[in-house]
Write a protein that binds this DNA or RNA. Structure first.
Length: 643
RNA sequence: GCCGGCUUAGCUCAGCUGGUAGAGCACCUGAUUUGUAAUCAGGGGGUCAGAGGUUCGAGUCCUCUAGCCGGCACCA
């Protein structure tokens, strides 16, 4: 007797071992039809898997969350089969499920073209129609390797060779086609359905290593039904409309051009947003006990040799020279901050010493990495370095995380991904120091009650780091905030302080930024708000628009009053219909419009129209000025995090 | 940097298989004085990314270069 527990808590008894498919049929015929896979004790399995002993079983159908994984995994396989049917000689490599879809990497001498995607898609639909059963076989490792080598699938053979010795070599067969795969899979190709679409072509290095051959990757998306697919594609279209590169042009915020690749020409409107943001951060960090400094942009290479940057990042530094020496544009501010720290004698009483700078840094990023405001070659960070004693790391980190979360909340970000990046392969400092740095950072993160993901080997060369990631409109994650523990740089640059014991000690240095690159953060912010900035950041806060030229004089007076209240105002006195003006300023995403006609002029009032709201408020001019002035105050960090 | 694609007016895009460049919006001018998301009419605007080649003839075909876009690699 085998006792099986179902998700609703009920149990069923089986006479003997039974496949998942038979088990589903035993419950209901309709369920057997809908079944795509099953979960045994929480583990996703093929529907054909035998239930052999007491366990908890859940039948997976299109309604289950896990169905998408199965479907996407099969979509990758069906795509690979289609590709090999259409393009004989193409080798398959790997084809995993990713967020919203899947990809498969192929090795083929000829490139695929955009037009091939349609053909592949059509062939995939044929394969679905064939509805071939998908079956699993376990092979002997040696046999599998020689088999794949014989049919010319050298990449597959290499993958098998590298699998752990105890890993069973499972092969999935669908019709005449088979692939090495861990599974699980759908019971047949027909169950995949047709709610999929191939989305893009890309190059990708074999095993993610730029020293290896470049493969051709085809990306696709797959869903359980047509409606979800359409919704997803529609979401992508909508996201494209809030792309910061597009809004930057449409809203006259900034532009970039060939002659200054990877650098930004900020226009008046964009720079206004920048200044507001920078001033806001300045206010917040001053309140958090930071001082602000300003250091040179061009510094002798000798300093970079001392700091270790010259050796490690020479290729990515812009250089210049005088008649004697080579200089480099600073890629970061920290060595310069250590120079300030070193002026005079510091005591343990001076620590923690928090030094901030909105310093302009240059990094010669590879051309292929450049991406609008998100990845630039010239950038300004809300950078700061905290010099402290080792025992202060925890409290300083906790305070920083608190400040960061409060700032993100003020700016409207709730979903922040936190990564803990530990020691990389090439690093400075002994393992003992790394042990201490990682332990200290970990203690601090846990003290702050932060949930994080581990990012192994991704730390900075001088220390472990926390990364705070925000997501752009198209779903890409970008690192914005960061905190890095550095036991090495201060010592390398000769920074010391006098401790309580009267002896000289080397301080620990915390590198930290909340917004990170302001360029990148503004890019994220533009997309986050789809250009509709909160009032305090909006480049133009109010447009005063007249209905007829009779109100022109009054409109000027209204604009002056608002300006005197610190608001950013424009007037629109053009000889145009009010509908035209409203449309134009709405498209420009101006948050407030004051519409003035005869009535307003006679009564000393204004008609306030909010962006996107049809209803208007009729107010006294003074009242409107007070109201808008109050609304336009920057946030103060007092906002409730639960909002 | 690597793979693929793209580059036509300020913007969005047409322009078949090579025969001398077009629309909408924007801009300018004129008329219109208008009450909450596009008033009407007229006008100007292009070395078709750049360089070279094939051809009687190239926006269209070929080569190279640059930038951009999508990935990959990189990201102190």
């Amino acid at each position: 007797m085998i006792n099986v527990t179902l998700p609703d808590g009920s149990t069923r008894q089986l006479e003997g071992p039974q496949s998942g498919a038979d088990f589903a049929a035993g419950i209901a015929k309709s369920l057997a039809k809908k079944a795509l896979g099953l979960k045994i004790n929480g583990e996703l399995k093929d529907l054909s898997t035998l239930i052999e002993s007491d366990c908890a079983v859940e039948i997976i159908t299109a309604e289950s969350e896990e169905a998408l994984d199965l479907i996407r995994h099969d979509a990758a396989h069906v795509m690979a089969e289609a590709v090999q049917e259409l393009f004989p000689g193409t080798q398959v490599t790997i084809g995993p499920v990713i967020e919203n879809g899947f990809f498969y990497d192929f090795a083929r001498d000829e490139p695929f073209h955009e037009a091939d995607l349609e053909k592949i898609e059509a062939r995939m639909k044929k394969i679905v129609d064939r509805n071939a059963p998908i079956t699993r076989e376990v092979r002997d490792r040696g046999d599998a390797i020689s088999y794949f080598e014989k049919i010319g699938e050298t990449y597959k053979a290499e993958i098998i060779g590298d699998l752990p010795a105890d890993e069973p070599i499972s092969i999935y067969r669908q019709g005449d086609w088979l692939d090495l795969c861990r599974g699980p899979h759908l019971p047949s190709t027909g169950k995949l359905g047709k709610a999929f679409k191939l989305t893009k072509l890309a190059g990708a290095y074999w095993r993610g290593d730029s020293k290896n051959a470049m493969l051709q990757r085809i990306y696709g998306t797959a869903w359980t039904n047509e409606k979800d697919l359409k919704a997803y594609l529609h979401m992508l279209e909508e996201a494209e409309k809030r792309d910061h590169r597009r809004l930057g042009r449409e809203m006259d915020l900034f532009h970039m051009q060939e002659e200054a690749q990877g650098m930004v020409f900020w226009h008046d409107k964009g720079w206004t947003v920048w200044r507001m943001l920078e001033d806001y951060i300045r206010t917040r960090i001053r309140a958090a006990g930071y001082g602000e400094v300003r250091t040179p942009i061009l510094i002798d290479r000798k300093l970079w040799e001392q700091s270790g940057h010259w050796e490690k990042f020479r290729e990515h530094m812009f250089t210049s020279e005088t008649e004697h020496d080579i200089f480099a544009l600073k890629p970061m501010n920290c060595p310069a901050h250590v120079q300030i720290f070193k002026q005079g004698i510091k005591s343990y009483r001076d620590l923690p010493l928090r030094m901030a700078e909105f310093g302009c840094c240059h990094r010669n990023e590879p051309s292929g990495a450049l991406h609008g405001l998100m990845r630039v070659r010239s950038m300004i960070q809300d950078d700061a370095h905290i010099f402290c004693e080792e025992h202060q790391i925890t409290s300083e980190t906790v305070n920083f995380i608190e400040l960061l979360q409060s700032v993100y909340a003020d700016l409207g970000f709730r979903d922040v991904k936190v990564m803990f990046a530990d020691r990389p392969d090439t690093r400075a400092g002994s393992d003992d120091v790394w042990d201490r740095a990682e332990a200290a950072l970990k203690t601090a993160v846990e003290a702050a009650g932060l949930e994080y993901e581990l990012s192994p080997g991704e730390g900075a060369f001088y220390g472990p780091k926390l990364e705070f990631h925000l997501r752009d409109a198209i779903g890409r994650d970008w690192q914005c905030g960061t905190l890095q523990v550095d036991f090495g740089t201060p010592g390398r640059l000769g920074a010391t302080y006098v401790g309580e014991d009267g002896a000289r000690h080397t301080p620990v240095m915390l590198h930290r930024a909340i917004l990170g690159s302001l360029e990148r953060f503004l890019g994220i912010l533009i997309e986050h708000y789809a250009g509709k900035f909160p009032l305090w950041l909006a480049p133009v806060q109010v447009v005063v628009a007249t209905i007829t030229s009779d109100a022109d004089g009054y409109a000027k007076k209204v604009a002056e009053t608002l300006s005197a209240n610190g608001l950013r105002v424009e007037t629109d006195l053009r000889n145009e219909k009010i509908n035209y003006k409203i449309r134009e300023h709405s498209v420009a995403k101006v948050p407030n419009m004051l519409v003035l006609g005869k009535r307003e002029a006679e009564e000393g009032a204004v008609c306030l129209r909010r962006l996107g709201v049809k209803e208007q408020q009729f107010l006294d001019l003074e009242k409107a000025a007070d109201l808008l002035r109050d609304e336009a105050r920057p946030p103060s960090g007092q906002r409730d995090l639960r909002e």
